[in-house]
Design a protein around this nucleic acid. Structure first.
Lengths: 249, 249
DNA sequence: AAGTTTTTTTTACGATCGTTAAATTCACTT
DNA sequence: AAGTGAATTTAACGATCGTAAAAAAAACTT
């Protein structure tokens, strides 16, 4: 509340669409530079290990200037989270394009190829999620924790929106949760897992391992989901996700 | 190197077996209190968010006393990691007891029950792993990173040692890695995942979800592994794990 | 009981943290 | 060219961090 009056006259992005990628203009604004640098730092260090001074250095900006655009570190982090999750969601929706005509095997294969390709070009989202996801809720450590949860809900929604799946919502939820859990780990913590496997985290060998793992584990259930009829209640706890939503959370 | 001379006269645990659980004696030593408190703090905060002062408070000890037993924070963390991973490994081996006679379904079911039961009684190991696993290798943030990797290698070894599996090592590696990845996430970051699912992290409902997920995803491949003969090379990249090890890393 | 060693407490150093406030520079309007 | 508001730099605050060193207390040896 100390700075509620200050907040009202804060500079904000004029263009609603501008991510930190800077939508086409020649040189990025200071605000954009800060957000971009912040996303870099926050994708390499968990919230409390990352510092405003690191971000300032990365953005080539005096660090108090960051407080001019973002009154607190938490504000900046939440902004990065918001952009990151939004960017990821929009990409995720696109990966489904034209998959329906290919059938489960080829469709799933292409989806993962697109996914991995995106993760290689934009490694930050998965890392930011992975780095901060575990943090204990009970300690209220991470600002924007709801946004972090939104990540999975978005992924499920993108799936439902794009795939003509007929199974119980409960099964869909399990499928997407399991898929994204592995994806976040294997792509967001690739150094760790590649290290275990004796591979390099960027190598085709490792990426093939990731794809194979996701395929072996998810594809059979995806197939089954696509074949199921709505009345089939094979899933444990037949309650649908929509029913759960109506109930509140 | 500043304190290499000091290190030689450091107090150490006389009994090789004493974990922070204190093997039977009446009151824990100061060292044990510190290690136990440290494991609590390190299971709630990632390495850099945890502080020596937090640990001192938790152990009810003046914080400089910690430096008397552990010259640096990194030393203490590595000690906790070592104990944690060792404790987990020994428990893991025990979960396999008497499973062979039950067949895949019942054996796997009992294994997971034991696993989840352990995770409820000893939530720290999974959390410590989950909290620090993602950290970038290239920044050398986390001391004892090799120990963190050891976790997965141990899990695979426990599996091979206890299950009469005939498949290619490559397939075994994928099976155990996928299994433990999900286990670490769902049990080590249960607040997050339960939150997504609209459940409570300790509830029977959520634990059932975890068990079901692990079962659906792993069991089919476990069955297949148990049926495979050694010459079957269905796995991608037929190189065995032992061959990989001989090659170095 | 005196002396010695081990353990614990006290105090404090230097570094870094997020944030604030004032001084300065810049961009723009008149 | 003067004036004005926004953007940026400079300087510094209080807090916390890991660690060190010295003082004090406790435990042990003789």
């Amino acid at each position: 509340m100390k700075k509620s009056n200050k907040k009202s006259q804060l500079p904000a992005s004029k263009n609603e669409n501008d991510q930190y990628e800077n939508s086409g203009s020649l040189k990025p604004t200071t605000r954009e530079k800060i957000v971009k640098a912040a996303s870099t730092i926050f994708s390499n260090f968990p919230y409390y290990a990352a510092s405003i001074r690191m971000i300032g250095k990365e953005a080539e900006v005096d660090h108090p200037l960051i407080n001019y655009y973002f009154p607190t570190k938490a504000d900046l982090f939440q902004e990065v989270l918001k952009i990151t999750i939004d960017e990821y969601y929009k990409a995720n929706v696109q990966w489904f394009d034209g998959l329906a005509a290919l059938g489960p095997e080829k469709g799933f294969s292409l989806y993962i190829d697109r996914f991995i390709d995106f993760a290689l070009k934009h490694p930050k989202p998965m890392r930011i999620i992975a780095l901060n996801l575990v943090q204990a809720k009970q300690f209220d450590i991470i600002p924007g924790y709801q946004l972090l949860q939104q990540f999975f809900l978005n992924a499920m929604q993108a799936f439902i929106k794009s795939v003509p799946v007929k199974g119980a919502d409960f099964d869909i939820q399990r499928l997407t949760t399991n898929f994204n859990t592995m994806a976040i780990n294997y792509l967001g913590a690739s150094d760790y897992y590649a290290g275990i496997l004796g591979m390099e985290s960027q190598s085709p060998e490792y990426l093939k391992w990731v794809k194979d793992s996701l395929t072996y584990i998810i594809l059979p259930w995806l197939k089954q989901l696509l074949e199921e009829v709505e009345t089939d209640n094979r899933g444990i706890g037949g309650e649908t996700v929509t029913a759960r939503r109506k109930r509140g959370q």
